[in-house]
Each structure stands twice: as C-alpha cells, then as structure tokens.
Amino acid sequence: MTLKISSFARIDTGGAFKNGELVVPNHQEGQDDFLLHIYKALGIKYGKFHKMDPLCKLAFLTAELLTDKGEILKDVPPEDIFIVIGNSSSSILSDTAHQQEIDMPSPAVFVYTLPNIMLGELCIKYKIMGENTCFQSEGYDINFIDEYIESTFKDTGYSHCIFGWVNADHNNLSAHLFLVSKSDDGMHFTPEKIRSLMNI
C-alpha cells in the first residue's frame, strides 16, 4: 500500500474548486463576503463558522470541499489522521484587529491571533486527534512538506493526512488542501504531482 492523493480542493480569488473543478465562482467584492458566499453556496450549517476569523474560515471551507463536509473522514479513527499546513502571513488579520483595539481588547479576537488555530478548528470539526503542525514559510515548500509527511506516515500508524497551504492577508487569500491516505486507489503522492495540481 502506498500514499495516494484521494482529493484536493482550492479556494482563491478565482473561486472555490474541488478536484480541479469550479464549484463556487467568486462574484463578491470583499474577502468576508466571498467566504460567506461559499459557505451559503455549499449549504453548510456550522454555527462555529461565524465566530472564526477569515484565515480559519478559509481553511474550514477548503476542508469542507476536500472532505465532502467530513463524509470522507467519518469512519476514520480520530487518532489515525494528522494535519500539516503551511502559511506565510501567520494570523496577520487577527493580529492587526487585536492591535487596533489593544487598549480595549476582545478575547474573541485574541484567540485567533495564532496561525495554528485553523488546524485546531479542523480538528474539532472532523474529530482529528493526531499531530497538527503549522509551518511558516515564504512560499509553499513542496519538497519539504512531502518529505515531512512521508516520514510522519512511516514513524506512526497514521492512515490519513490533510496537508497544504492556507494563507490570508489584507490583500489576498489562497488555500490548497490535499487529502492523502494509505490506499491502492488515487493519484500517486509525489512532489511533482502536487506541483502540477497546485499549478506552480
């Protein structure tokens, strides 16, 4: 059994895509409107969504596309899944919001001033109890992440991994998530394949 990519999803200013196909086009003006539009278009009902910051919303919506709203993972034991996500702007949107109200801070904003919170939100939604690591790098270092994931699968009895890149700043948002598992079916998990799917 080898590592196979079973699905992939992407959200950027062009829209929301599942396995390369456009699911929700972007006709919205601002980031917040766009994210809420995807939420509604996908028919998601998840109260926690509305309290999330844009980075977590972006990670969550991309993961909803990736996992068919969690369906794909529902029979996988929580401890058999791990998450590795890269990001370059950390939690800058929430950081700035907290900084602007620093003399009268809101705890609801402050709790989002860490980039790994988005991994925590995915863990809560999909009941994931394995490793969750958030790397900071300028761009998505595919070779590094690929090696890291392979070595994590080798060391531990994991069967599934969600990995990718989720970044949101004042000007842009971009998310690519992949689901990789020990399986006989699917596309081979190689840096070349990831690069071609990400179009970079």
Binding site: P78, E79, V111, I117, L119, G120, E121, C123, I124, Y126, K127, I128, M129, G130, E131, N132, T133
Partner: peptide, 8 residues
C-alpha cells in the same frame, strides 16, 4: 503530538 479536537 496530538489534538483534543474539543475547543480552540
């Protein structure tokens, strides 16, 4: 490493 999958 692990996650509680419980609360942020």
């Amino acid at each position: 490493q692990s996650n509680d999958a419980n609360h942020i």
